[in-house]
Amino acid sequence: MGTPLGDFVRTRRDSTQPQTLGLPDHGRRRSPGLRRSDVAARAGISVEYLTRIEQGRDRNPSVAVVNALADALALDPAARGHLRYLAKITGGECTAHARPEPPSREVRPSVLQTLRLLEPGLAMVTNRLGDILAWTGTFETVTEGSGLLEAAEPNLTRYVFTDARARALFVDWDVVADEQAFDLWLGPSIENAEWFTAELAPVAGPDFTRRMNRHVVPPRGVLRIGHDSGCELRLRRETLDLTSDAQQLVVWLPADEETTTAVQRLAGRSGHRRLRAIS
């Protein structure tokens, strides 16, 4: 049985072409990407040890080995961070723990006060499971009609994978789906993620499971929103981690003048709406 760490190392090895690292092309082979011998030599470890890591038979590589693998695979900073995170949770997989429970949905009053200061901007409080816990009136106006906030306890991840309207709201749906699947690896805790994944997988289908196991580190570029008025909003996202709460304050900022004008117009329509929090 594999591990998240082993799966990620194997996936990155298979998706890296030798020529990108200045290595000779050994010609046609059964699987794409780098040979185990190439990665092992670059990392300064044995092929046998790399095989054990990839197959999940070694769950506790040292920090030095993890860093050497990151160097050998020429990982960028985001992918390096994910590799270190997977090494941490893989090493603790055999630790017994109580049955996981859903994370808290309570948002601190000071966080809600901060969110109010962002009106009439586009902002929400969420966690990495995708629970949307509070949002501004303008956020509600911009997503109105999409179904995103219709549930009593709205969840972005569940919405993306189970509601057909998500493909109209998110112009680059594939990118957003990769982001939401990837974020499940990051918490609020690995126990919560396992609980949520088990709940979501039966209704989300194999596409969700495939994205979870790909370990694609998303670029998180400009978010394109298809508004029901016919205009397309281009938004940059700024995220403030609320570490002690395992939550995030996410602000969507216009990425161009056309979007700025459209958001200002929509903000005028949201004047009657108040900040909403789910708890």
Rank of each mutant, 00 (worst) to 15 (best):
P100A: 01
N127Q: 13
T243V: 15
R59A: 08
E150Y: 07
Q264R: 15
D38W: 01
R128G: 00
P218E: 12
G145R: 07
R167A: 15
W195S: 00
T95H: 11
E140F: 03
Y159Q: 03
R237C: 11
L86T: 00
T11G: 14
D172Q: 12
T11E: 10
T197H: 05
A277N: 10
R28F: 04
L122K: 06
V125L: 10
G230F: 10
N67A: 15
D174G: 13
D7S: 08
T126N: 14
H215N: 06
Q17E: 15
I190K: 00
Y159L: 03
W195D: 00
P24N: 13
A201I: 02
A40G: 13
I45C: 13
P61T: 05
A64R: 15
A255M: 11
L156F: 12
Q113K: 11
H272R: 14
P120G: 09
A246H: 11
G22N: 10
L240E: 04
T11W: 01
Q180S: 05
S110H: 15
T197D: 09
A277F: 08
L21Y: 12
A70Y: 01
Q19L: 12
V263S: 05
Q19M: 09
A40V: 08
H26L: 15
T95Y: 06
R35V: 05
P202K: 07
L223F: 10
V175G: 05
A166E: 05
P18R: 06
P202N: 09
T239S: 12
P18S: 10
L83K: 04
A96Q: 14
V222D: 07
G22T: 11
L86M: 08
E54G: 03
A70P: 09
E258T: 14
Y85F: 13
R211W: 05
L73G: 06
G22L: 12
R105P: 05
R237L: 13
G268H: 13
A74P: 03
D38Y: 06
G226A: 13
R59M: 03
R29V: 04
T90A: 00
L253S: 10
R167F: 09
V250N: 12
L133Y: 02
L253C: 07
G2W: 01
G271D: 11
V217C: 14
L83D: 02
D183H: 13
P102N: 08
S15P: 10
D241T: 14
T239D: 11
Y159M: 06
Q113Y: 10
R10P: 04
I89E: 01
E140T: 09
G130L: 01
T260L: 12
R59F: 03
E194N: 02
G226C: 10
R108G: 06
L112Q: 11
G81P: 00
N127Y: 04
G6R: 00
L115I: 12
D245M: 13
A164P: 14
D178Y: 06
T197I: 13
R99I: 09
H227D: 08
R52S: 12
I225S: 04
L186I: 04
R12Y: 13
S31L: 14
L275H: 04
E199C: 07
P218Q: 11
R30W: 08
A246W: 01
Y49C: 06
P61Y: 06
D58M: 01
A64V: 14
T239H: 05
S229P: 09
A43H: 05
V160L: 07
S146W: 08
F161M: 04
G268M: 11
E179Y: 01
M124D: 08
